[in-house]
């Protein structure tokens, strides 16, 4: 199964916390690009991760050439054409930057959007940035929308302050673009609040098409009512996966396991097989990215993408 995202990286502040260094990454078969990336560092406002740090919100870069992107030649060789950088802040302080890189295959449907308010309309969200693969029509429609709090994926995430996963988005009453999404082949979506610093709110939406899903499975983990353990609130994949469901019945203690570490440190993690030759029989779930959703310095949820 092909996924929409080709490369996932975590860039973390170095020991002086003045520049970003490579944390971990999933590169699939893109060995040369991986080799080119592992020794990179990014100063504040430098390259895609540094830019997201400086801007303080997620950014989408749909064209690398003649841009601030630092690995243009390597990305071109690897067939990567677009980058999305999501900074993870706890208050003023950057914990990490998650970078997704996508390619421009012909069969490449899906969307990753950044929503925010702007000065003229503080009560409504609009698409600030977005990458839509081959869904140009859906992109044109999406960029015209203004959504209030409580409507659409981003509006619901805004209202609740929590990640929102809708698994049959083309039929969802709450998803304003349901008809257009259906037409574009989009089957599920997740909206995630992503800023924990002063200023306008920002939300990421990941819209997944069946042929090229954003991830093979997406989970939302939240602290229980006592704040003692993480529980899985929701898990979704195109095909049901009872093995994944067994592990979603677990509770996770702070500091224990990958998700427990995300809770403990406020840092995103990548686990699993980082090598390209993983066993395809392993239910196709060979690696995981877990991103914390932080509000006022506290963990609200963890969103895990299983690839």
């Amino acid at each position: 199964m092909k996924t929409f995202i080709k490369v996932t990286e975590i860039w973390i502040p170095d020991k002086d916390r003045t520049q970003l260094e490579f944390g971990s990454g999933l590169y699939g078969e893109l060995i040369a690009f991986k080799a080119d990336s592992e020794h990179q560092t990014f100063a504040y406002n430098e390259g895609l991760p540094g830019k997201a740090w400086a801007e303080g919100h997620p950014i989408v870069l749909t064209k690398f050439e003649h841009s601030y992107f630092k690995r243009t030649a390597a990305a071109k060789n690897a067939g990567l054409t677009c980058g999305i950088a999501i900074p993870v802040f706890s208050g003023d302080f950057l914990m990490a930057v998650v970078v997704f890189l996508c390619g421009d295959d012909e069969d490449h449907a899906g969307a990753i959007e950044v929503w925010s308010t702007h000065a003229a309309s503080e009560n409504k969200l609009t698409v600030m940035d977005g990458y839509y693969g081959t869904l140009q029509h859906f992109e044109a429609i999406s960029r015209q929308f203004n959504i209030p709090k409580g409507q659409g994926l981003a509006g619901l995430a805004w209202e609740s302050g929590m990640p929102i996963l809708i698994d049959d988005i083309s039929k969802a009453d709450t998803f304003i673009r349901a008809g257009d999404a259906k037409e574009a082949g989009i089957s599920m979506g997740i909206g995630i609040p992503v800023s924990d610093n002063p200023g306008p709110p920002y939300f990421m939406t990941f819209l997944s098409a069946k042929a090229t899903p954003i991830a093979k499975r997406i989970q939302i983990w939240i602290p229980d009512s006592h704040g003692k353990q993480l529980i899985c609130q929701q898990g979704y994949s195109k095909n049901s996966n009872d093995l994944a469901e067994i592990f979603e019945a677990l509770t996770v203690d702070k500091g224990v396991g990958a998700l427990g570490r995300v809770w403990l440190t406020g840092m995103p993690v990548i686990t699993g097989n980082h090598e390209p030759d993983y066993n395809p029989e392993l239910d196709s779930l060979s690696s995981m990215l877990a991103i914390p959703v932080i509000e006022k310095g506290r963990l609200k949820a963890i969103v895990s993408f299983l690839f």
Binding site: L243, A244, I246, F247, A258, L259, E281, D283, L285, L306
Partner: peptide, 29 residues
């Protein structure tokens, strides 16, 4: 029995299913 049912549902051997379970647990380690 859980392992066997998972393997039967996927039409794979118990050994292969065991590897799946181990791999999945590794993800959450």
């Amino acid at each position: 029995h859980t392992l066997r049912k998972l393997a039967m549902d996927r039409n794979i051997t118990l050994g292969e299913m065991a590897k799946n379970v181990i791999a999945m647990s590794e993800l959450f380690k």
